[in-house]
Structure formats: structure tokens, C-alpha cells
Amino acid sequence: MQMLLTLQIVNLLASLLLLIVFAMLAQRRILSLINLFALQGAVLALSTFVVGYSTGQHHLYYSAGLTLLLKVMLLPWLLHRLIRQLDVKWDVETLLNIPVSMLIGIALVIFSFNLAAPISQLAHGLTRGLIGIALASVLLSLLMMLTRRKAVSQVVAFLSLENSLFFAAASATQGMPLVVEFGIALDVLVATFIFGIFFFQIRETFDSLDISHMEKLKDD
């Protein structure tokens, strides 16, 4: 019975994760986008903790703690500081209008649920149904990277992609070795720093963070 309850909680958190990715896809403001990203990290940490508790794998506690520290506190703080320094609180311009990207999002969800159905039948364990949700979140984050024009929102989309992959790892395969997790966490942190430097470079060169200006870079 207790097992069942934790499974329900994990299912609920997974659905919440999917909902947050959709909310990010629909979000027009960069500030809210970053707050949603922090919320996604919090849900991820909670679900990792619950999976760790229900399967008795205590090393997942560490990765939940790491997620909380890195993705709920440090990265959103860095991003907030970044947009304050760059002074880019403006609305995000999307390439597709929001209802259309929502419809594409639903199609992606259906696609990935179908794709994951045979895989999750091969898998065993409590949380096998979650592969589909993780895959859908990955594809939706990818869609967000494609449809956004501004560099900051693309980076948030990239980080959300990483979150979804982490969720897949934590829920479907019941966790990676801690060394690998530390490595990935460090990678993401370093990537954010490098992105931050890139933002300054891009703005210095083009006076804008709109990456469509970069197409003029071609040498001729």
C-alpha cells in the first residue's frame, strides 16, 4: 500500500514536470521562464527523493540534494543575475505563435508516449511508465530551443532538456552512479558560466541577444 502511494506521488510529480515544460513553452517573459525552471528543478529534486525513498537507493538522496542546490538555487540565481546585468527583461519573441507550438507539443507528447510504450513494457520496476513522460519533456524542451529567438531562453530550454534527461535517468534506470552525476552537474554549471560569457560577447558584437543576427557572420 505504501509502495502504491509513493508510486502515485511519483506519477503526479512526473505529470507536473510535463505541465511545467508546457508552461515554459507557453511563457512569454524571461523572468517567469527562469522561475519556472527553478520550479522544475524543485519538482525534479522531490521526485528523485521519492524514488530514492521508495526503492531504498540512498545514493539518490545525494543526487536530489545536488539537484536542489544546483538547479533550484544556484542556476536560477546565476540566470537572474545575468539578465539583470544584460538588462533583458523584455518579452520573449517566439518564431511560432504560442497556440501553434502548443499543438505541436501535444503531437510530440502523443508521439513520445507511443514510442515509449514498447520500451516501458520491456523495463521492469515501479516507475517504468515514466519513460514516456521523460521522453516527451526532452522533445518539448528541444522544441522550445527551436522556437525561441533569444539566446537566454534557448539556454533555459537547454537546461530544461538536461533536467528531463536527468528525470529519465533517475526514474527509469533508478539512478546513475554518483560520479557520473557529479560530472554532469559540473558540466551544466560550467556550461552556464560559458553561456553567460557568450551572452556578453554576442551583445557586444551585435548589440542584441537575438541570435538571428548571427546568420550574418558568414564570411564572404
Binding site: N11, S15, M102, G105, I106, F113, G132
Partner: peptide, 14 residues
């Protein structure tokens, strides 16, 4: 969107 997602999640997670 929310309603369709609910329906899809019902199919996935039953």
C-alpha cells in the same frame, strides 16, 4: 491542452 494531457497521461500511466 490540459484536458488532452490528462487523457494522454491516463493512457500512459493508467
Amino acid at each position: 491542452l490540459l484536458a488532452v494531457l490528462g487523457l494522454l497521461i491516463h493512457f500512459l500511466l493508467s
